[in-house]
Each structure stands twice: as C-alpha cells, then as structure tokens.
C-alpha cells in the first residue's frame, strides 16, 4: 500500500489523467457558433427590441410609470370624437418615445400594459441592436417603434407588423396576429 502511494507520488498519473480529459475534448464537437453567418434564434420569450402598436395604445402611462429607469416618454392630449353619435373625450397620443440606448430590457413595461393584446412588447426575438450613433439610432419615437427603421430583419425576428408570439407572456391571444415561424 505504501509502495503504491509512493509510486503515485513519483509518477504523475493524475497529470496524465488530466491530459486524457483535454485530449478527449480535442475530438469533441465544438461549441462555437459562427455568428454573423449562423444566427442563433432566441427563445420565444426572449426580450429583444420593442414592438409598439399605436392603435392599441390607450395612452394610460402605465408603462412609463412601471419603467424603473424612466425612459418612456409619453405626451397626449384629449380630443373630442364622435362615437356612436355621442361626443366623447378621447386621449390621443402625440409622442411615444423610448430611449432604447438606456433600456435594460426588464420587460416591466410590457407587464404593466393593460390592453389586450399589449400595446408595447419586447418579445420580438431581436438582438442586433448595435448602432454607430446611439443618440440617433437608439432613440425610438412611435413611428420607428412601429416601423423598426434601421433594424435589420434576420431569421426568427418578429417585426412589429408581425405582432407578438401568442405563447409569450403578455403576448397576443392566438389569432390576433400570425407570427412567422
């Protein structure tokens, strides 16, 4: 017993064992994803770039209040509109701006949104948000929130026009807007 212990202390078996582990990994399948050519498709609930729907928005400011870093700026005014012959006051959205460069993509705005389906959502599966000029490219007004001017579509992305995934939390109920697979 002592002899084997001595032998093990002289001959580095365990180092050879370690070499064996790395040697085996040498032949294993590599984990690398060749990014610009191969684009990983995020999971359904992935919180990516904002999607926004002006017609659903009721300008209630809940998202702006829920935002922990206050990057949603909303301006609205009341307008007299005629609904079924009666005159009613209705909130009309003037501005809906999101300072995306400061966003931390927590998704609390989406959770706070009271409309069904939600008017502001993050589950767009988009992650390529890099920009050369952050003040210009990453400040989205309501037009850009809906058109995604400048955001390149790539496999898996759901543009605002395509709506949300029905499965996603806070997502549209099935049938509201058909997502692309």
């Amino acid at each position: 017993m002592r002899f084997w212990g001595f032998l093990a202390s002289v001959i580095p078996f365990e180092l050879a064992q370690g070499l064996g582990v790395t040697g085996r990994f040498f032949f294993k399948r590599k984990a690398t994803i060749q990014y610009p050519e191969v684009k990983p498709v995020p999971k359904d609930r992935f919180r990516g770039m904002f999607g926004f729907s002006e017609e659903r928005c009721i300008a209630c400011h809940a998202c702006a209040k829920a935002c922990p870093i206050a990057i949603i700026h909303i301006q609205d005014h009341f307008e007299e509109v005629e609904v079924e012959g009666k005159k009613r006051k209705k909130k009309v959205l003037d501005r809906y701006d999101i300072d995306v460069k400061r966003c931390m993509f927590c998704g609390l705005c989406e959770e706070a949104c009271p409309t069904k389906p939600v008017a502001i959502w993050l589950t767009s599966k988009s992650y390529e948000a890099a920009a050369y000029e952050r003040n210009e490219r990453l400040y989205f007004d309501k037009g850009r929130l809906q058109s995604w001017d400048g955001v390149r579509p790539y496999p898996g992305v759901l543009t605002p026009a395509q709506g949300q995934l029905p499965e996603a939390p806070g997502g549209a109920p099935a049938g509201s807007a058909e997502p692309k697979p």
Binding site: P42, K43, D44, M104, C106, G107, P169
Partner: peptide, 20 residues
C-alpha cells in the same frame, strides 16, 4: 432564456410570486 426571456439579468421574480 426560455423561462423569462433574459439570460443574465433575469428579472424573473415578482412580489407575490412568479410573473410567468
């Protein structure tokens, strides 16, 4: 990511339970 949509900064719990 599959559960809450984020990989690192999860924001995966709420007061009173789980959001999803």
């Amino acid at each position: 990511e599959e559960y809450c949509g984020a990989r690192l900064t999860l924001n995966a719990m709420r007061v009173g339970g789980q959001p999803y």
